[in-house]
Design a binder for these strands. Structure first.
Lengths: 342, 342
DNA sequence: ATCGTTGTCGATAACGTTTTCCAACGCTAA
DNA sequence: TTAGCGTTGGAAAACGTTATCGACAACGAT
């Protein structure tokens, strides 16, 4: 079945040299004469020899594989994965994807279990996407994207949530909205915390009293957001605008609004966060905060590779810029109270 | 920097046994007394020992890693990847993703290069998504999803393109359309070939004469499709309907139509193929042929794992069912000739 | 002639496992 | 007592690399 693998020993025999010499020409080490090198090269391409990555890994304590751990392959992770895949091309590393498959309940042990495989077993390092874990005490380097609250433990890449949330809230305020709800994110993530905090501050700065009943948690999740949106839109005094902490929440909200006959943006303005590709496609196209997700993925693996190589890394906490993208889901609010849906 | 890895030797020393015995308890081999086993287990969890996957791989000639090769992480591949990730969970395998990064020019050597790493170097087998390669002569098993034309070389997973294309074309015909264009797919893929062929047959069966000027190739690619769509919609006698060979093409077409002021579905009906998530979100929501992409990904890795394990696999060419999903991009055609956009 | 020096090359010990023996031991049966 | 047998444990050889170090030849300089 498995054809006999051609090994370094075969090459050595065929070329009439020792395995040591073959190894040297493979790794471009000094100390082999030009003609022997040529001879060995010839035999190598002749036999179609390829060094066993596994054996090399065992010997070198380097697998040249990095892992990316995501809770689920939703749009954010997927975009990030694309960036990671772009950055890894030509780097000499491979990318293995671990997805917990959506059930956040499974995340708990799952993350730790894979993290424990880190040092020397399979991967040389890992990118953690929206992790639940706050610190890691294994040997291999780790960088977190959209990190957990208070995770000073490892290098991070994130976006300017503070500015983004301020832009979002102020956009709604500037359109005349006063009853602005918040569809909050995953409570354990720094990004969600910051977005909520700035939302409160911006409202306060505009002199809008804070109304606890206007914040519901959507947890960055479609199903949770659907339920939260339903409460928000069928409550006693419907908000005129919603700041959704991410686009998945916003899009879920859009669907709920449509099913309820609430028109967006006439009856309800919505702004999201992330600018995932879907946000430009949905109806109406979503006004949102752009976060350069793919670039975040690229930066994360670049930083990780530097860490693995032991190279010095200039900034160990990267924060990328966010921008407001105005599309069709937000509109001026004239202040007329249209009351609850009836 | 790297804390000293705890090895099987450490466990053996600590437990007062030999490494052979430790290996036996790890792999549940017969021949170790209950109390020694318990003692070793205790030491293992005590030291937090984890066997080196690399060393195991070297010894066993099995890496427990499978590769998935995609040309690019566009929606189809991404959905397929989700299915693959689902199927792999709990299987004991890991999934490494190779993306060529979109430039089909790079695909040529790229695919072969990674394929050559197959046997024994890093992965135990691979899933090829919309490959350019038709046969592979390396040791490890391979299964192709949406295979190349005439690739009888390896096991395949695809969807019922024949039925899907027939449903699509007949749907348009039954709505009264007669000038039905085709935005064709990647010429080297069996799926594209079949979709085009059935399109022709269905038209012929309905007595509609074939018009060569109505077929343009979009290559399953957004940019190519944009250009093709532009030609199609600005040509001398605009079609009343387009069958796009995949949803990416269809969505690109939708955008071109909008920019041209061609209303969908009033002035132009569009049906896509694939039913990627985006097709439900775009404006108008796309009528399309559903192809169970995630399931295809699951089936592909399941089949591959069986192949790797040497288990017999019942069906080595899987074809999954397709269905017509009618949404908002198709409408009845009253036969009035509205002429070219003017 | 002798002595470094430089340039090539090869033997060999790792790396951390698994597996195949084989040895030792305690039994039971003759 | 001894032969035979089942049970348990260990020694050692792989798996395919790479790095270290020493051997050896050629050579110029003293």
């Amino acid at each position: 079945m498995h054809q006999p693998r051609v090994t370094i020993r075969d090459v050595a025999a065929q070329a009439g040299v020792s395995v040591a010499t073959v190894s040297k020409v493979i790794n471009q080490r000094y100390g082999v004469a030009a003609d022997t090198m040529a001879r060995v090269q010839a035999v190598i391409s002749d036999l179609g020899y390829e060094a066993s990555l596994v054996a090399q890994s065992l010997r070198n304590h380097r697998t040249n594989v990095i892992g990316i751990l995501v809770a689920d392959l939703e749009p954010f992770s997927t975009e990030l994965l694309k960036g990671a895949a772009d950055a890894i091309r030509g780097s000499g590393f491979e990318l293995v994807v671990y997805s917990a498959g959506g059930r956040p309940g499974d995340m708990v042990g799952w993350e730790q279990r894979y993290l424990s495989r880190l040092s020397g077993t399979l991967v040389d390092g890992a990118v953690l996407v929206t992790p639940t874990v706050v610190d890691v005490h294994y040997g291999a380097p780790v960088v977190a994207v959209d990190p957990h609250t208070g995770s000073s433990g490892f290098p991070t890449v994130d976006a300017d949530n503070l500015r983004g949330a301020r832009l979002a809230t102020e956009h709604l305020l500037s359109l005349g909205h006063r009853r602005i709800a918040l569809l909050a994110g995953r409570a354990d993530l720094e990004s969600a915390k910051q977005r909520e905090q700035v939302y409160r501050e911006a409202l306060a700065a505009a002199g809008v009293p804070f109304d606890e009943s206007l914040v519901r948690v959507g947890g960055y999740d479609a199903e949770l957001s659907r339920r939260a949106a339903l409460e928000l839109l069928t409550g006693p005094e419907r908000p005129s605008a919603v700041f959704a902490a991410n686009d998945v929440s916003a899009i879920a909200l859009l669907k709920v609004a449509q099913s309820l006959g609430v028109r967006v943006p006439e009856d309800l303005s919505v702004v999201g966060f992330d600018n995932i590709p879907e946000s430009a496609l949905c109806t109406p196209p979503l006004t949102t905060i752009d976060q350069p997700i793919r670039t975040m993925g690229e930066r994360a693996v670049e930083m990780l590779i530097q860490l693995i190589r032991g190279q010095p890394v200039e900034r160990t906490h990267l924060t990328l810029a966010t921008e407001l993208v105005v599309r069709g889901s937000t509109a001026r609010w004239d202040g007329a109270v249209r009351g609850t849906a009836a």
